[in-house]
Nucleic acid binder design. Structure first.
Lengths: 308, 308
DNA sequence: GATGCTTACGATACCCGTAAAGATA
DNA sequence: TATCTTTACGGGTATCGTAAGCATC
């Protein structure tokens, strides 16, 4: 048994049992991949994959059982390298934060500036994507930290922590009739076409739940990934917008007016997540602590051990 | 990084940093061991061991931090092999049970017979030793299951479960004066020279605690590893004996009389232990379940995951 | 001087990649 | 036929063990 074999096993599952792809993604030859699998199987005396003729189709029972251990071993190998880096270059290295547009643009800038001030030699990568993409980046080990409002809390392999709480707000153009009503109601909002976030983004599910629970049908005419796009279309008269309150500032967004609707939609909690069992560099834990002072290195580590 | 390097790191710690011994125990050459360590250190860019000139003295900080991961990886590698065996030969293999004399002779026979009946093709090894030795056999991966009354519950790397409860009994020769007194007292026992177990064995600590708490000084003239030896010396008139009640049967032990003293010494609990994170063969879990029906495979696994 | 670690060097085995052949859809 | 996997083969490299050289105690 050697590490290349383990990497191949893991990658074979990730690449859906296509050995050619596996070879490419590991920068080696198909023949080598094939041989490694055979060798491991013969060493263990068990078939790891189902085959139909020459094609691989899936994992056998013993294969599935082993996979978790294979993954943990590779994780541990990465952890060892991480520790080494930690000691050889305390404040140097790379930190990849996977996040949604909303977080990157409105929540994280303060943290990023502070982080760069303290760790000028750490190369910080902001990787933007949907919450689902963020989760899979974390799981694949391609990102160290994930920040998003949706999804992250639902993946068992991730350890997630509350970052900050926020509400949606309704945005309208100057002179809009809604500006004159007092306290907004769901029905009043539903009287207008709505522009808001895509499904799976930035509390969209919370918005839908409110309308559904009230038995009101909302007319969502357009959905977008981020508040900036939504604002643009609101300005173009496509309808009223529902966005994260933090993403609108009446000073910086001339022509846009913000209406409180914290009484209409449930509060959202943005979360910070890490892959369980994935040991981070010290500065990565510092980054998380800068987001929320309660999230110390010990707190995060305690929640993110990998116990299978 | 490869497995041989990891094995060498682990063994170097176990062998107290003597690379010659490491080489012998891994059946390879010193030169190879030395080179492997150097290579791993240079790959990681960190020194793992403190050196004074050419001698290794101990682990550096990063080395210590890595060690736990190294050990887990090697454990996981063993687990994978275990799974493979599990599937390739369901009811064949080897099971090593480390136990004290008392357990091997008086508690386990019934279980062993039953186990052999169900798994005739499993090679069962009974490894006898002191509780401390049993613990280290488990930790070194040389035994799968440990059974003893002392020590096992105190080692954090071991998961231990109650096996059965028992009391001590006093044994005397026929016609002994103690046979005529009614309910025994500690003082009456202390009036005679005592033969009992060694320190660290079979509830010896419980016996001492009772005397100490009562402020009575007992005269322990002889201590032995097992009840059979103790019985012999009692027969020779060295004194009265204190042994596990289960180890005396007035039918099978002619000339020996047993006196109840469950009111004098605290109850003992014999424990079954496994190394946390060490996955066992199915038949090993069956063995444990035969000892105590509540200890199912799930119960044991739940307590013995290795989360660092 | 005995023990223990490192370096040098040659034989072996392992791993990888190219190329051709066989299977599958 | 195009895609994918296996087998065959050659070059390169890593690993291992012996033996010699050096510290350390």
């Amino acid at each position: 048994m050697n590490f290349q074999q383990l990497r191949i096993i893991r990658e074979t599952v990730r690449r859906d049992f296509n050995l050619t792809e596996v070879a490419n993604s590991l920068y080696t030859s198909q023949s080598g991949v094939s041989k490694h699998i055979k060798e491991l199987e013969s060493e263990l005396g068990v078939e790891l994959f189902y085959r139909k003729g020459k094609r691989l189709l899936g994992m056998t029972e013993p294969g599935k059982e082993m996979l978790r251990y294979v993954e943990r071993m590779l994780l541990d190998a990465a952890n060892i390298k991480n520790i080494a880096e930690q000691y050889s270059q305390q404040d140097e290295g790379q930190l990849t934060v996977a996040t949604t547009h909303t977080q990157a643009r409105y929540a994280l800038p303060a943290v990023v500036v502070e982080f760069k001030r303290r760790y000028p030699r750490v190369h910080l990568k902001l990787h933007q994507g949907s919450p689902v993409e963020i989760a899979s980046l974390l799981l694949a080990g391609e990102a160290d930290i994930g920040v998003a409002t949706e999804t992250l809390g639902d993946v068992p392999e991730l350890a997630s922590f509350p970052y900050y709480r926020w509400h949606h707000a309704v945005i309208v153009t100057e002179g809009h009739p809604l500006l004159t009503v007092g306290k907004l109601t769901l029905q009043q909002i539903a009287d207008y076409p709505i522009v808001t976030y895509h499904e799976g983004f930035t509390g969209r599910s919370v918005i839908e739940k409110s309308f559904r629970d009230a038995g009101i049908k909302a007319d969502i005419v357009l959905s977008a990934l981020d508040a900036d796009v939504i604002k643009s279309y609101v300005m173009l008269g496509m309808g009223i917008g529902i966005v994260a309150s933090v993403s609108v500032d009446e000073q910086r967004d001339p022509g846009i007016r913000k209406l409180d609707c914290s009484h209409l939609f449930a509060e959202n909690t943005s979360r910070i997540a890490v892959h369980k069992g994935h040991l981070l560099r010290r500065f990565a834990y510092q980054f998380i602590e800068m987001c929320s002072a309660e999230l110390t290195e010990e707190t995060v580590k305690a929640e993110s051990t990998h116990d299978l």
